[in-house]
């Protein structure tokens, strides 16, 4: 039988399964169905049980590897080595992972150890004698389709590309040990520091309310945050707002920040320069509030309100609250 399709089950800081992995697993199932191949999830963590059980809702079989070293060491290199060892043992054909920082680290290590190629940041994957991977490149100016030249490869998938959907029946979790030693240097985590803000992560948010230079200062983000809260979304920002120190880098969207694909992107005081556009233009719906009718964002938003954000944003907040009753 042709080699299996593997899904990398990433764990969130609390030990549960990362949301991206539910999406990756759903995509993996579609590819396994189309190719009539086995589908296997793999979780490598200090305590993999919780995440492995969650992953089993999506895939028929989950390998759970207990790896104590990830408790107090940077996980990417360790998880990558274990995954590469299991790949050598079980000989799957393809591995699918999330395209976030953790997935990238793991994909980089596995690729280096196996020599397998990587198709990154997939915005869609279908099966035609192998995974055919769509990606958005050059900041969204082109959509490419690519494939592997051989029978193996690693695909990383962007958040919000697939809607997670559990399988009809739960799969089974198999505790297993990855063969071999961890030969690469382990990097100790000497301290874990929680961010001062408890801002929701933007990569996986369904709704993002973002502020740019037009917000005017850190206080200006107050209304951005209120709107995000009312909409159940996360707060994003442009590089200008981050560079000015108004909001942490973790919230930055764009070329040197994060690339997001929410259902709604509400842009307040954001001109829509190319460096920002590349991070958010694949949002399903873009609504902008800007004083300047000639701002670039007015060319690609679905709706643009021409006006002062400090008048429009509070009015929006009031209208949303009215509607919520």
């Amino acid at each position: 039988m042709a080699g299996a399709i593997w899904v990398h089950g990433e764990t969130a800081p609390d030990g549960s399964l990362a949301k991206i992995s539910t999406e990756v697993a759903t995509l993996g199932r579609a590819l396994a169905d189309a190719s009539r191949r086995d589908l296997v999830g793999v979780v490598v963590a200090a305590e993999p049980t919780v995440a492995a059980n969650e992953l089993a809702a999506y895939v028929p079989r989950v390998l759970a590897v207990t790896e104590p070293a990830t408790t107090d060491h940077a996980a990417g290199t360790i998880v990558g080595q274990r995954l590469a060892a299991l790949i050598e043992r079980d000989a799957p054909s393809f591995v699918i992972a999330g395209a976030g920082p953790e997935g990238r680290d793991v994909a980089g290590v596995v690729s280096a150890l196996t020599g397998w190629g990587v198709l990154v940041n997939a915005t869609g994957v279908r099966w035609e004698d192998g995974p055919v991977v769509e990606m958005s490149v050059f900041g969204g100016k082109l959509n490419t389709t690519s494939r592997f030249t051989g029978d193996h490869g690693i695909v990383t998938v962007r958040p919000n590309v697939v809607t997670a959907e559990a399988a009809g029946a739960a799969g089974k979790v198999e505790p297993t040990e990855a063969p071999g030693e961890l030969s690469l240097p382990q990097v100790p985590i000497v301290d874990r520091v929680a961010a001062a803000t408890t801002a929701a992560p933007i990569e996986e948010a369904r709704i993002i309310v973002a502020g740019g230079r037009g917000v005017g200062g850190p206080d200006g983000f107050g209304v951005v945050e209120e709107l995000a809260q009312e909409l159940g979304g996360a707060v994003g920002a442009t590089r200008a707002a981050v560079d000015a120190g108004w909001i942490p880098y973790a919230q930055q969207i764009g070329q040197t920040g994060k690339i997001v694909k929410p259902a709604l992107y509400l842009a307040l005081g954001i001109s829509g320069a190319i460096q920002h556009k590349v991070g958010m233009q694949t949002a399903e719906t873009i609504v902008a509030v800007n004083r300047d009718p000639d701002a670039p964002i007015a060319e690609f938003a679905d709706v643009v309100v021409i006006g002062d954000l400090f008048e429009v944003a509070p009015a929006l907040l009031a209208a949303l609250r009215d509607r919520a009753g």
């Binding site: 397998w116 190629g117 958005s136 100016k141 389709t145 690519s146 494939r147």
Partner: peptide, 12 residues
């Protein structure tokens, strides 16, 4: 020796 190949590209 490339492990990946681009099949096509188009404007979104």
């Amino acid at each position: 020796a490339a492990t990946t190949a681009v099949l096509g590209a188009e404007a979104p």
